[in-house]
């Protein structure tokens, strides 16, 4: 019962944050509501018994990634969003198409859902077990992600640096 109450409260906070992200026009307000979404999602992960994922969610998502976003918003001094006219053809075709698609998906889900309740706390989500899995069974993908992160760091540095500063370092060498 307590689990259900916690799920409902934090689920509602989560959805409210997601809708606030859409409604706000200034990007900094959207970024802060995204932090709310990620924080309440961490609580949902805890309810599912995934302590490791909850901790990583707070540290990496709500911490590192969102700080990067807020930093870029402040760096670029982004103002409120300006509206522009959408295409009428896209509206005429898109809205009925989306309606048909969602009704079909909902019909399939309602018709064929044979889901059973999940027992909370039943999952052995101990960080030790995850480490065993990550550094043993998934060792190669883990090493590949380290290369991916390295490439991302180099790409970010090259993309964000000014062209004239690259020219300068070339001349100095």
């Amino acid at each position: 019962m307590l689990h259900l109450v916690l799920f409902t409260v934090f689920g509602l906070i989560c959805v409210a944050g997601a809708i606030n992200l859409l409604v706000q026009t200034h990007p900094i307000n959207s970024a802060l509501s995204l932090v709310v979404v990620m924080g309440s999602l961490a609580v949902e992960y805890l309810l599912l018994g995934a302590e490791f994922v909850a901790a990583v969610q707070v540290i990496v998502y709500a911490g590192a990634i969102m700080v990067l976003f807020v930093f870029v918003i402040m760096l670029l001094n982004a103002g409120a969003e300006e509206r522009s006219k959408g295409s009428i053809v896209a509206l005429m075709l898109g809205v009925p198409g989306m309606l048909v698609g969602s009704i079909l998906t909902a019909w399939v889900l309602v018709k064929h859902s044979g889901t059973q309740p999940v027992a909370l706390g039943a999952l052995p989500g101990h960080p030790k077990d995850i480490a065993q899995l990550l550094f043993h069974d998934f060792l190669l993908p883990f090493e590949v992600t380290s290369i991916l992160v390295l490439i991302a760091i180099m790409g970010a540095v090259v993309l964000a640096s000014r062209p004239e500063s690259i020219e300068k370092t070339k001349k100095e060498n």
Binding site: V56, I65, L133, L134, D137, F138, T145, A152, I153, A156
Partner: peptide, 26 residues
């Protein structure tokens, strides 16, 4: 538990994507 390991990989890719994407935005 492999589902949780997959979430870890999704987060790593999201972090890399955020770094490169924000550099492109700049």
């Amino acid at each position: 538990l492999s589902g949780q390991v997959f979430v870890f990989f999704v987060m790593v890719v999201a972090a890399a994507e955020a770094a490169v994407g924000l550099a492109i935005i700049i």
